[in-house]
């Protein structure tokens, strides 16, 4: 797995400009008083950049060569999930650092007690995001997965619209109030467990997909 991490690190280093733009955007959002958004943005973008290595691997039939090296398909899948979690975590750390720095310099007043739950929710959603899109990418490849992604987004919107017919705003507020009243460690742990369950189920699906593939 070490070789896979080194390979992906090399890919990421080839996109230094993208990383720089991300950090600049993060600072810009913070300067515009959108520190919370910057935090979630960085978490997701961190994971997305790492996920893009899936497309680089597949370019020019690269997977054939990759799987002629001493790595198993299972290892490959696990490495991608770990990589995305690492990317998301680093993104979140950079977002937090920027937000705290902005607060210290008096650009945007931020309370850690406010921003940490946002960071955490963004982090859990990053798990869900990876859990959906890694298997899609492995199954359909870079090109087709974009179309499938639009399809998934469409389905999510439809579910949201349908759900809004049955769930009133009051019910949502009540749910948030209920969650807000729960002890923070329980909410945090539950969120992490849900994220982890998504990831594990998704990883199992991804392994099944890739083991059936031929290169």
């Amino acid at each position: 797995m070490k070789g896979l991490f080194v390979k992906d690190f090399c890919f990421v280093m080839k996109r230094k400009n993208t990383l720089l733009i991300m950090v600049c955007l993060c600072v810009m959002y913070m300067l515009l008083g959108m520190g919370s958004f910057a935090l979630a943005f960085m978490t997701w973008m961190g994971a997305a950049v790492m996920m893009s290595t899936l497309a680089y691997d597949a370019m020019n039939r690269g997977l054939s060569y990759l799987f002629s090296l001493p790595i198993s398909r299972r290892e490959y899948v696990y490495e991608k999930y770990l990589l995305c979690v690492i990317g998301g975590t680093l993104g979140m750390a950079i977002g937090l650092f920027t937000a705290v720095a902005g607060s210290l310099f008096g650009i945007e007043e931020i309370q850690l007690s406010e921003i940490l739950p946002i960071a955490f929710v963004g982090y859990v959603f990053m798990f869900v995001f990876c859990s959906i899109f890694i298997p899609v990418d492995i199954k359909f490849g870079a090109e087709q997965s974009r179309i499938v992604t639009f399809g998934i987004m469409f389905v999510i919107v439809i579910i949201g619209v349908v759900a809004s017919k049955f769930v009133s705003e009051e019910m949502i507020d009540d749910a948030f109030t209920y969650i807000g009243n729960l002890p923070l460690p329980i909410v945090g742990l539950t969120g992490l467990v849900i994220g982890a369950i998504f990831m594990v189920v998704s990883a199992i699906i991804s392994v099944c997909i890739i083991e059936k593939k031929e290169f």
Binding site: V6, C10, N60, R61, S64
Partner: peptide, 21 residues
């Protein structure tokens, strides 16, 4: 018809193979 990514240079190939083998 397959090999390391075109984005890599020989130095990257060396790093990756060094970690693989």
């Amino acid at each position: 018809e397959s090999g390391f990514s075109d984005m890599f240079d020989a130095g990257d190939v060396k790093k990756v193979l060094g970690a693989m083998f």
